[in-house]
Amino acid sequence: MPDFGTLSVAAAEIPVVDRFVTEPVEITDATLLQVVCEIGVAGQLAVLPPALHPTSPPIAIWQLLEVGESPWGAFRLASIRVGARAATKSRSFLVHAFVDNPDAGTALRESWGFPCVDAEVGLRVGHDRIAGWADVGGNSPFDVELEDPAPIASGSVYYAPSMNLAATPLGTRLLQVDPEYLVKSVARGRPQVRHHPGIVDDRLAPTWPISATAATVDITLPTIRFVCDPALPAAQGTETITPAAS
């Protein structure tokens, strides 16, 4: 049996989700920068809850999402996830989220369990590089870059569904947030991450670059269909959300 995460979820400060979202939200023509790097083996288990297995090797995923129009107005969201498996399913565990629009932050926190922190979030798209960063009160947790973007087939990029930890009516749960992505165009390039310890978990420091992509996407933020007890293996602790429970 593979290892399980060892994160103490009781000690974590987590978003409160009073009711599970029942209507999806559609976002069009967003820009999504994603950088994937390996992280250290030593700390990976401590970052994941016991419901999830680590990937082998451990990875972190940095995302910068720029949205021009949404029910909450334009916003930019920066996030860091850790690659994981819920039993045999490919997942990521959301560790940090930074947003530059408080209304969007509230909605993402209360409906999908994003642990949003107010921040300045930037995304700059150039022909030579695409750069993204977050800034919290003058301190930058990280900045990422895709260098030398070159178009690739839109079907080749993959976004792992996210598991977001939240206090819910069912108790502390991992919310499975699996947006639908319609990838309209995507470019791939060399990844670069500068990790600045302090604001984000030091165990997420990148150790080996893997890939960087920047895509134009339509995203459907989903209803919550599954949640998982973070203390139990996902194969045992997953629950289906019925409309009555929402």
């Binding site: 990937t55 045999t88 690739i152 792992a160 992509t213």
Partner: peptide
């Protein structure tokens, strides 16, 4: 077998390329 195999990280998941469909 089926539980262990997907714990590995497949190219297709993290490195977009037509070479690994």
């Amino acid at each position: 077998f089926n539980y262990l195999a997907p714990q590995q990280l497949f190219v297709k998941e993290i490195y977009p390329t037509q070479s690994y469909a």
